[in-house]
Structure formats: structure tokens, C-alpha cells
Design a protein around this nucleic acid. Structure first.
Lengths: 223, 223
DNA sequence: GAAAACATTCGACATTTGCCGAACACTTTA
DNA sequence: TAAAGTGTTCGGCAAATGTCGAATGTTTTC
């Protein structure tokens, strides 16, 4: 279930689809002109929709509009979800997007990591990372905050510090709809068997790094 | 986000809306005739939609169809999510919807429960419950499966058995977008402090029952 | 204040949809 | 096998939509 589906569903089920279209356009901070340009149609079409001149747009039109809004937001690198990031908690030590994807293997090497689960899934690219304190993150971030730690891309490594056995982070990852490209535990005492199993089921590489927090961030900054 | 929105969104975003309409109609085990009767239209209309004769149904039609499907399933007391319960892992011991909401306090009393967190939020109604094995559920249910354990209503009690300290279930609840009306631990050894904190943050009553699994189910069946 | 950006209204019209019902086809039940 | 239940196809047609562009209005920027 992604955001496109949610928006499309909401528009479709609305008594006034046009109003809902406008609501979402404004949420994305898009002008009618931008939307119309993206769709290569006249701006008056968007205005007609939003005013309710057409009481019941067809699915093809709604689909095009929703997809255009998402595409435009993506193109600006500041999606609506990121706008809500201003209130990040102090659970996050570092969060970065790479300018281009880093091979997962290189990422693991940079933190002298050892893969303990889903080793077969290291052929992917990592587009960013988030370093956070395990307990604080779980304590302070509810499910709707998770998109904050994912930043622009879910193709990222979630790095948990303050991990003893690492069961809770993997449970949280398991329960949440969005999945990271990799999970890293920084200097755990030991890795919990259930965490390994959950990582295998989710096909998410689970990596252990022996570096100190500062050293690890230092190395990640070099990527 | 409810299931109507998901279905409507999926239909709208589909390249072949008609096929998706059919998929969901069959998922609900409804005949075209039933759907047509409910909507007071000719069955051939439904057939035309599903065949794709109309490439792009309008939002009003999709809305009516989706709402009719949901209404018909409700009227039969066996919603589609419940039907998936037959394929649920053996993590689920019991799942039920009440015909009307039960006061949370009565629910707690029936299982001789003791509230250990969010006691102030017991003024709500509980519309159903799901009894599951904590570890098995976490292991076998990913985030998209959570709707299975929630049944038709999220206003339900999630009852976890096989709980030692109860941290993982609360972590999972914390991470997931949908929140239950109550969380119950059946005979835990002890209750983990973080679990209590998470329950307080989420404003979800956390209840401990001293009953055996069978005894507790027996009592819940009496509600 | 002027220009640019953004938005609205509305006539027009080709195209598509919502819906009907007749005729037919297929599947299930007794 | 016959009847009942379910589904399909398609001609027909009124209504609605997608879209244009001209004319107009509103807001923002310099």
C-alpha cells in the first residue's frame, strides 16, 4: 500500500473528488500549471476538475493526476513526507543521502562489517543511511515517523547503535511496511537468533560492525 | 487507511480497472448479480465493467462498486479478512468480532486482567480480539499481514501468549501504522519496562492476564 | 504600477461512459 | 435432462467527460 494508492483511493471515494484533488495538489505545493505541464494538458482542465465542473472524473484521469503529483514531488527532491522531518528526535546521529547508489558490499567494507543474515542480497545499491540509537528510536518514533528515518530513499542502510542483542530493531523493521536495503548493528554484544531469522525472511542483509560509533560515522562520511 | 480506500486506490491506479474490480469481487465471493442487485443496476453493467468494455470507469461508479462490495460482505458477517484467517499461520489461536462493542473494562475483567499501562484509556469499546502466539506471530506475519489479525476493526484487543517479558509485541505494535484498542499479555513472566513505556506513549492499555490460554479463550468466548 | 505567474469560467465538441435489455452462453443443482 | 443461477455480448442512446482556448480575474513579484 503506497501513498499513490492512498491518494487515489481517497479521491475516488470522496463525495467531491475535485476538492480532494486540490487538497493533495496543495499538500504537494504544486500549482495547477505545473501539474498541467507535467500532464501536457491545459491548466484549465485542472481548474475544471478541482472546481467540480466534472463531478466524476474517470479512473484514467485520476491515475494520471496522482502519478504526476508524485513524480513532480520526486523531481524536487523534497517530498511531502520530508517536509515533516523538521521535528526529528535526538535519536538520530547521522542521516545522509548519497549522490549515487553505493554497492552494498562497499558499504559493508567501509564499516568493517560482517554479514550475519541475507548475505545473498548484497547485490543491491545503498542510496543513503541513517544512524540512530536503537532504544531511543523505538521509543520516540512511531510508525508514521519511520519515513523520516528513511529520508528520500528506502534503499538505505539503517544503522542501530546501543544494541545489545538486536531483537527489537528487527522486530520494528519487520512490522513496518517500508523495508530498508540493509540493517546494521554497531557493536552488539551478540546477535539475537530471532533477529537473524527476521532478516532472512525479509531478505534484508543484516550486518554487524565492530567499529565505534564515531569511527563508523567517520568512515561513512567518506563514502 | 481502510480497506475501501485500498481497493478503490488499487482499481483506480490499475491499467485494467475492470480486471481489478473482478479480482476484488471474486475475493469477496460475490456474484455479479449480487453486486448489481445491491446497486440496483443490471448485471450486464457489471459484466461490461469487468470485461473492460468501459476502459475508464468514473470515480462515482468505482465508489459505488467498492462500497457495495464492503456492504455486502459486512451483511454476511464473514469479511474477506476473516476468510484469510483460514490460511493464517498457526500463530493465531482465536479471532473474533463482537456483534457490538464491549466496554474495555468488561473485557479486562473477563480475563481477570490487571492494567499495567495506559489505564486512563479504558473508556473505549472493544469490537473484537485476536489471540496469538507472540513469537510465531512476529515470525510469520509481515507488516502487510497485520490486517489479518486486525479483522474488520482495529478497535480490538491483541492478546499475546508465549510472552516472557513482552517487549517484542509492543515494539511491533509501535512500529505498525494500525493501532489496536488494547494489548493483552497472557501470563508473562514479567513485563518489560520498555513495553510499558511504549504502551503509554501509544495510549494503548496494556493488560496482563493470569489465566491459562484455554481458560482465557473460554472466558472470551462468553463475551 | 506593471509584468509575470497563477487561476477561473465557459462555450464548444468529439469521445466516452452509464445503463438498459434482448439474446445467448455457461455452470450448477435437483 | 431440465431448470435455475450466473455470466457475456452488443446495439442503442442519453448523459457526462476530457480537453481546448479565449477571455477574464487574482495574486505575487519587482
Amino acid at each position: 500500500m503506497d501513498i499513490a494508492e492512498k491518494i487515489a483511493g481517497e479521491i475516488t471515494l470522496s463525495e467531491k473528488p475535485g476538492k480532494t484533488i486540490r487538497k493533495w495538489r496543495e499538500t504537494f505545493h504544486l500549482s495547477q500549471g505545473m501539474l498541467a505541464d507535467c500532464l501536457k494538458i491545459s491548466p484549465s482542465v485542472i481548474s475544471d476538475y478541482e472546481s467540480g465542473r466534472r463531478a466524476s472524473p474517470n479512473t484514467a484521469s485520476v491515475k494520471k493526476i496522482v502519478e504526476a503529483m508524485i513524480k513532480l514531488d520526486e523531481g524536487r527532491g523534497s517530498n511531502i513526507i520530508k517536509q515533516y522531518s523538521t521535528k526529528l528526535s535526538n535519536a538520530i546521529f547521522d542521516i545522509r543521502e548519497f549522490t549515487s547508489g553505493i554497492p552494498a558490499k562497499n558499504f559493508v567494507e567501509s564499516i568493517k562489517g560482517r554479514v550475519v543474515a541475507s548475505k545473498d542480497y548484497l547485490d543491491r545499491k545503498i542510496h543513503g543511511y541513517t544512524v540512530m540509537d536503537s532504544l531511543k528510536a523505538i521509543m520516540s518514533l512511531s510508525s508514521s515517523d519511520y519515513l523520516k528515518i528513511y529520508g528520500w530513499s528506502t534503499e538505505r542502510a539503517l544503522v542501530f547503535t546501543g544494541v545489545k542483542y538486536g531483537r527489537s530493531p528487527m522486530v520494528a523493521v519487520r512490522a513496518h511496511p517500508l523495508k530498508p536495503g540493509m540493517v546494521v548493528y554497531q557493536k552488539p554484544e551478540k546477535v539475537d537468533g530471532l533477529a537473524v531469522k527476521l532478516a532472512e525472511v525479509e531478505k534484508i542483509p543484516l550486518v554487524v560492525s565492530p567499529l565505534s560509533l564515531n569511527k563508523m560515522i567517520e568512515e561513512l562520511r567518506k563514502l
